[in-house]
Design a protein around this nucleic acid. Structure first.
Length: 503
RNA sequence: GAUCGCUUAGCUCAGCCGGUAGAGCAACUGACUUUUAAUCAGUAGGUCGAGGGUUCGAAUCCCUCAGCGAUCACCA
């Protein structure tokens, strides 16, 4: 017999012990008056040995036991507090039950608050009751669960004993709230658009495919909400709209990529990409302040990043010129650009267009150096199929990407609103698709029809939330900021199931 | 997808020049009772990720596979 089964049987015996004395081991709700962390704050100043006489009821999980149940460390979502059980204050019928408790059990305790002579804030239990029996053992108490795979697969265990992990997810929530609140304060209307699309669009990516039975129709999980948000702009529900939601891309996993991830997209009619830069700064700064006590400074991997103030705005070609000495605005023939790029050691594929060469130069020579926040503007038309061209230079678009720590955290542009141009660009994408590019855009006639009704000049913005959370919590893997990251399936080990099948 | 690395008790980890598997915590039995990783005595717990090979003998060496991680490529 395995050890885990021994532990299970011992706990099952205790569970039966509770039933023997007429206590249901999975109780109904009880009234909780206080939380551990709040009590620690409230009584922070009382001295060792002081008994307050204040009666409280708390509830939480047993994290450790000393002196055969005399001392229990109880943990709730706010913190920990010690429970003291002694025959002086606890009736014999409760004293007798102390031996039935196991680590991990969820209990409720009522009693008076005191600080022990050893200076530990403590509740003298007068009433103690089991709320939920724990049958599975918790991780080792000193080191906790360090196996990173288990932490991702068993987040409920990770959260019970890992303060850092818990803190990250609380901060993630605060960041989303701050961004939502900033958007609302700026007059944006929060909207929802479909996650199941008949035609995937709005980005260049491979989609997940699913099927609707009743309609007998193929559907795609959205790779971006963009085209539907633009439909709402055309409809004029509001000049300013935003959506916070999940996108799905059927691509590789990495420390910076999860197949489902959260984006914030905002669209503003009668605005352009420059207005979007202001919006990025506002929302991101509020998010930073929300989790850094009002400061805009963050430390990521020992580097200090200051999100405050107005971020510099520099064009992509200018940045490339600074780092490589090549002014691609003066080398606009694709063949010449390829040649120039290769001269400085860039890995440029044959047949690249001008914009692709500029992008490669930027990726290889500039990107990593952009540690402090910056808006990289005027991206090439060739790599910006949904962005409006610059008035004075058709090679470039009114588009920018915001970089922090060498990562793109936002992407925005003045949206293409010309149905003829959109038609041509979809057609070009469709041809690429026929030629075997499975990431190319589908031809979305319905969207062109939408634009034919007239979309006002509009600024659009997308922010990758998960990476922002990584930056603001000093997390180095996207899986650390997603509660249940995508993993290969692993066998569960329910003891109830196993014992049932063995008997 | 490529390269490298990891996988030993429920958890955290030793053991790896090949010679029948070890500690701490958790668990169990008992002692003790104002502790703070409580302490003390004892008990139990393992298909060493899976499969194959070399060998008299494999946790240890070799091969295949799986899961996970790091880096790279695509991408946010």
């Amino acid at each position: 017999m395995t050890e885990i089964a021994e532990i299970y049987k011992s706990r099952l015996a205790n569970l039966d012990g509770w039933r023997d004395i007429g206590v249901e081991p999975y109780a109904n709700k009880v009234e909780v008056t206080h939380h551990a962390g709040d009590l620690q704050k409230k009584y922070a100043d009382i001295e060792a040995g002081v008994e307050t006489g204040d009666e409280v009821t708390v509830a939480g999980r047993i994290m450790s036991v000393r002196n055969s149940g005399m001392f229990i460390d109880l943990q709730d979502h706010t913190g920990k507090i010690q429970i003291f059980s002694h025959k002086q204050s606890l009736a014999p019928k409760y004293m007798d039950t102390l031996k039935l408790y196991d680590l991990g059990d969820i209990i409720t305790v009522t009693g008076k608050v005191r600080r022990t002579p050893r200076n530990e804030l403590t509740i003298n239990s007068e009433h103690i009751q089991l709320l939920s029996k724990s049958l599975q053992p918790l991780p080792e108490k000193h080191h906790g669960m360090t196996d990173i795979e288990l932490r991702y697969r068993k987040r409920h265990i990770d959260l019970t004993d890992n303060e850092i992990s818990k803190d990250v997810f609380i901060k993630r929530s605060k960041i989303i709230t701050a961004i939502r609140q900033t958007m609302l304060n700026e007059g944006f209307l929060e909207v929802e658009t479909p996650m199941m699309h008949p035609i995937p669009g709005g980005a260049v990516a491979k989609p997940f495919v699913t099927h609707h039975l009743a309609l007998d129709q193929q559907l795609y999980l959205r790779i971006a909400p963009e085209l539907y948000l633009k439909r709402l702009i055309v409809g004029g529900i509001s000049d300013k709209i935003f959506e916070i939601g999940r996108c799905f891309r059927n691509e590789g996993l990495s420390p910076k990529h999860n197949p489902e991830f959260t984006s914030i997209e905002a669209y503003q009619a009668h605005a352009n990409y420059e207005d979007m830069m202001d919006l990025v700064e506002k929302t991101v700064q509020e998010a930073v302040r929300a989790v850094h006590d009002g400061s805009t400074k963050v430390t990521y991997k020992e580097k200090e990043i200051d999100f405050g103030g107005n971020w510099p705005r520099k064009s992509m070609t200018e940045l490339v010129k600074e780092k490589t000495g090549i002014d691609f605005l003066k080398v606009t023939d694709p063949e010449d650009a390829i040649k120039k790029g290769r001269e400085i050691g860039l890995d440029v594929p044959d047949g690249s267009n001008w914009g692709q060469v500029v992008e490669i130069a930027f990726d290889e020579k500039v990107e990593d150096t952009l540690v402090q926040p910056i808006h990289v503007t005027d991206l090439p038309m060739d790599i910006s199929p949904l962005a409006k061209a610059k008035k004075d230079n058709p090679l470039l678009t009114e588009r920018f990407e915001s970089f922090v720590n060498g990562w793109e955290i936002a992407n925005a542009f003045s949206e293409l609103n010309d149905p003829f141009d959109q038609y041509r660009r979809f057609k070009a994408q469709a041809e690429q698709k026929d030629a075997g590019d499975d990431e190319a855009h589908h031809f979305d006639e319905d969207f062109i029809e939408t634009l034919e009704f007239g979309m006002p000049p509009t600024g659009g913005l997308g922010i990758g939330l998960d990476r922002l959370v990584m930056l603001l919590t000093d997390s180095h893997n996207i899986r650390d900021v997603i509660a249940f990251p995508t993993m290969r399936p692993a066998a569960a080990a329910s003891l109830v199931t196993r014992m049932d099948s063995e008997s």
